[in-house]
């Protein structure tokens, strides 16, 4: 069984698992990090969206072998202690969440987008494919714009 070493939310981890083990189950079942959520397992609904080296990925389709030596960030690692990330603050101000299940993934997708584009256009926000079954999209859009202005 190979061993893969990488960091998760700033902490070094060493994971013994078959190469093709999806990162989602390494995080949830082996490391007990339950922020990323299973929504489909095939990279289509994006509920598990997290970051590798700052870019948005879906851990359900990333084999653990791809993580060797890289920086994984989940929703739990976005805030700086009690100081929330501007995207998280905007989510509270706009009262975005309903059931909340997709929101960790939505927030990580938004944070990655704001790293790339300072003030994203409607088209760039529309390009976010994360499914929200409660339909909070309009407030997600408002919160992303609010966070962009605050950053």
């Amino acid at each position: 069984m190979p061993t893969y070493r990488f960091s998760v939310n700033g902490e070094q981890v060493a994971v013994d698992a078959p190469a093709d083990t999806p990162l989602l189950w390494v995080l949830r079942d082996r490391l007990g990090i339950t922020g990323p959520k299973y929504g489909c397992g095939v990279g289509v609904c994006k509920a598990c969206t997290s970051h590798i080296d700052g870019a948005a990925v879906t851990p359900c389709t990333v084999p653990v072998s791809d993580c060797q030596g890289r920086k994984v960030t989940t929703i739990e690692g976005l805030a700086d202690g009690d100081d929330l990330h501007p995207v998280q603050e905007a989510w509270l101000t706009e009262d975005v969440a309903q059931c909340g299940f997709c929101q960790p993934g939505q927030i990580m997708a938004a944070a990655a987008l704001l790293k790339k584009t300072k003030s994203p256009t409607d088209a760039e926000i529309d390009a976010i494919e994360n499914v929200c079954r409660c339909g909070t999209y309009c407030r997600i859009r408002d919160a992303i714009k609010r966070a962009a202005a605050a950053m």
């Binding site: 990323p36 805030a79 969440a97 929101q103």
Partner: peptide, 20 residues
């Protein structure tokens, strides 16, 4: 208008669902 009482747990990934 009052924000969700569990909103902070949701946006920080602390909210626990059955599989958590």
């Amino acid at each position: 208008p009052t924000g969700r009482v569990d909103a902070r747990d949701i946006v920080t990934g602390k909210a626990k669902y059955t599989m958590d």
